[in-house]
Design a protein around this nucleic acid. Structure first.
Lengths: 354, 354
DNA sequence: GGCAGCATAGTTAACGTTTTCTAGACCGAG
DNA sequence: CTCGGTCTAGAAAACGTTAACTATGCTGCC
C-alpha cells in the first residue's frame, strides 16, 4: 500500500514540473505560451512533457476557469439523413472556428433529451443546439427545458432551438426554424393542381411538432382548394421506412381509395414505394408519391421523388454560427428568431389526374 | 468592481449550502445519497437546489475523482449511413447501461482524429471507439496514435479500433474488424460466376485501409479465377455518391469497356446508377452494378442493389460492450480481436453474361 | 450515572490546473 | 552605486466537488 495514488493514473503537471526541475507555474506557462519563459526552461519542460507523455486534465483546466470550446448538438437519431446533414453543418462551422462539436442522441425520448441538455450544462458547453420536433408537450417537460435554458443562459451559454417551436417569449433561447407548414401547403397545392383529390397523408407521431405542422399545412391547402376534410386519409406513424411501408401496405390491402400519398418524410416515402411495388402499383401512373426533406435518397428512388427541400446543412451552420457568435463576440443572440424557407422540388413521382 | 466573481456564473454547492443553512458536505451527501442525512436537512437542501436552480459542476466532480460515464465514438462523417448505424449500436449499448455516448467527427482528417482522441483522453472518457478505415499511414500518425492508446490505457480507459487494422501487438487496444477482403472476394467471385470478365472497380482513397482491403479481395478473386490483372479497371475516388457518379461518367464518356461496376460502397453505387441512366444504360441488362455495406439505400435503388452485408449496428454494439466491460467488470479486453464476417446479398443488379 | 455506540453534522484536505502576486537578478541610466 | 525597469521564476490562492476525519448529541445498557 504505497500511498493512495492509483498506480495507473496519468502524470500531472506537477510531475512534469518535478521532472524538469521547475515549478508547476512554469510548466503551465510553457503550455499556455502566455508568459515569458526562458529558452532553457522551455526546452526542459517540452522534453519532460514528451518523456512523461503528459496530457493536461481538461477538468482541472475547466475548473480553473478556462473555457472548453465545446458545442453540443442534440438530435433524436443519427441515422436520419436530414439531421445528419444538419450535424455536418454544425460541425463544419464549429471546426472552422476551432471549436469542437459533440453529438448526442436522444432516441426521441424527452427524458433523455432533458438529461443530455442537463449534462451539457454541467459540462459547461459553450452552447447547446437542439434539433428536431418536440414530441412531449407535457407542461413538465416545458418547465424543465425552460429552467435549463435559463440556467444555460445565466452560465454564459446559449440554448439554440432548431426546427422546433420556441419555449416562450421570456425564455432566453435562439430559435431557428424552417417552414414546415408552408412547405406542406405548397406540396399539397402541387398535388391538387395535378388533379389529386384524395391524398393519403402519412404523418409522424401524433403529438410531434414537425409532424403536426406539416399536417396543418396540408389541411390548409385542402381547405383553400375547397376539398373537404377527410380524417380517414391521415395516418400517424414514425419517420422510418418501415413505418411508411407498413402503413401503406395496410391501406392498400384494405382497398385503395386515394390517388396520391404525401409522406411526412423522404424515407417514409421510400417505404411507400416498397409497398406500392408489392401491390404491383406503378409510381406515378397508379399512385403518386411525394415526400419531405429532399435528402439524397429522393434522387435515388425510381421514379425520382418529388419532395420539399429543406436546407438542413445550412440550418446547422446557422445554428452553430449563432451559438458561437453569442460566445465569442459577446453578441446577444438571445431572442433571435430565424426562419428558413422551403420549396417544392418537382421530380417524377406525381402524375396528372382527372 | 464588486468582487471578482462573474455575476453570470452558476450557483455552487456552497451557495446551496448557505441557502439551506447546512454545510457543503451535507449538500453533497443529499446529492449522492450515500450517507445518512436527516429528513429535515434533506428537505431544506432539496428546496434550495430547486430554488437556486443548482446544477453540479461536472468538472469539479470529475476532478474530485468521480468518473463521468462517457464513451466517445469517433468517425469521419455522420452522413454516411453505415457508420451512423454503428453509432446507433454504440449508443444503444451505452444507454442500456446508463452511460452517455458522444459522437465526434473527423472529416477524414487524421490530424483532427488525433486531436479528438487527445481531447477525449483529456476529458477522461471511459473509452474511445474509433471507427472507419485509416487513411494516413504515415509513421508519425501511427506513433502518435500508439502513444494515445498507451496513455488511455494507463489512465484506465481503452481505445477500441473498429474496422481498421491494429496498431501493433504491443499496443493496448481492442480491435474489432469486419472482413473487407473476404467480402470483396466473395462479391467478385459472384460477378465472375455470372460471366463478368471486365469489372470496373471504384475504390476509395488510394491509401485508405478499407479501400485497400476491398480492392485486395477483388484482385485475389480475379487471380483465383485466372482473370488477368487489369490496372486500368481500377479507379480511386472517395466514398460519396458524387464520386461514383463522376468516375463512372468519365469512364462511360471515354467508351465503355466493362460489363460490371463494383463500387466500394453502396452510396458510390448510387452514383453509378445515376451515371448509367444518363448514358441510357439499363442496369443490369447493359451494365451490372454491385456495392458494399448493404445499407437501407441498397433496397431503394432500382434495380435493387446486390451488395455485401456488413453488420454495422452489431459492430457498434460489440465495440461498446467491450469498452464498457473493460471499465465496469474490470475485465481486461486489451488485445481482444474480433472479426465479423460479411456476406453477399444477391438482389437484381447483376445480369448473366457470356 | 457513566459510557459504548449510533445517527447526524461539520472541517478539511485532496483533485490538477491557472493566475495573480511577490521576488530575485540583471541592466542601463543618472 | 543606487535606482527604476525588464525578465524570469516561484508561492499560493482560487476553481467546485468529494470523502476521510472529527465532533456532537442521543439512546440505551450495565
Amino acid at each position: 500500500m504505497a500511498g493512495r495514488r492509483k498506480s495507473s493514473s496519468s502524470p500531472t503537471l506537477a510531475d512534469v514540473a518535478a521532472h524538469a526541475g521547475v515549478s508547476p507555474a512554469t510548466v503551465s506557462r510553457v503550455l499556455a505560451g502566455n508568459y515569458p519563459v526562458s529558452r532553457s526552461a522551455n526546452q526542459r519542460v517540452q522534453r519532460s512533457i514528451r518523456e512523461l507523455n503528459y496530457s493536461a486534465n481538461t477538468h482541472a483546466r475547466a475548473l480553473a476557469g478556462v473555457q472548453t470550446k465545446t458545442i453540443a448538438f442534440i438530435l433524436a437519431d443519427v441515422r436520419g439523413q436530414s439531421f445528419a446533414d444538419a450535424a455536418h453543418g454544425v460541425e463544419q462551422e464549429a471546426s472552422r472556428r476551432g471549436w469542437l462539436s459533440l453529438i448526442g442522441t436522444t432516441q426521441g425520448d424527452s427524458e433523455r433529451e432533458l438529461a443530455l441538455v442537463q449534462l451539457m450544462r454541467e459540462q459547461r458547453a459553450g452552447a447547446v443546439i437542439l434539433i428536431g420536433g418536440v414530441t412531449n408537450e407535457a407542461a413538465d417537460y416545458r418547465a424543465k427545458m425552460t429552467d435549463l435554458a435559463r440556467s444555460l443562459h445565466s452560465a454564459g451559454s446559449l440554448l439554440v432551438l432548431c426546427g422546433r417551436p420556441p419555449l416562450g417569449d421570456d425564455v432566453p433561447t435562439a430559435v431557428i426554424e424552417y417552414d414546415n407548414e408552408q412547405g406542406a401547403y405548397a406540396m399539397t397545392s402541387h398535388l391538387l393542381s395535378q388533379g389529386h383529390r384524395r391524398t393519403l397523408f402519412l404523418a409522424g407521431p401524433e403529438r410531434q411538432s414537425t409532424s403536426m405542422q406539416r399536417l396543418a399545412g396540408h389541411r390548409r391547402a385542402l381547405h383553400d382548394f375547397g376539398v373537404p376534410d377527410a380524417p380517414e386519409l391521415v395516418e400517424h406513424g414514425v419517420f422510418t421506412r418501415a413505418s411508411g411501408y407498413q402503413l401503406t401496405k395496410n391501406r392498400l390491402a384494405a382497398g385503395q381509395d386515394f390517388t396520391a400519398v404525401f409522406a411526412a418524410t423522404d424515407v417514409v416515402a421510400a417505404g411507400v414505394y416498397a409497398a406500392a411495388a408489392e401491390f404491383d402499383l406503378r409510381v406515378p401512373e397508379d399512385l403518386s408519391v411525394v415526400g419531405y426533406d429532399d435528402v439524397e435518397l429522393a434522387q435515388d428512388l425510381r421514379p425520382r421523388l418529388t419532395s420539399v427541400h429543406v436546407p438542413y446543412e445550412e440550418l446547422g451552420r446557422a445554428a452553430a454560427k449563432i451559438a458561437l457568435d453569442s460566445q465569442h463576440q459577446q453578441l446577444d443572440w438571445t431572442g433571435a428568431h430565424r426562419l428558413f424557407t422551403t420549396h417544392v422540388v418537382v421530380r417524377n413521382s406525381v402524375s396528372r389526374r382527372g
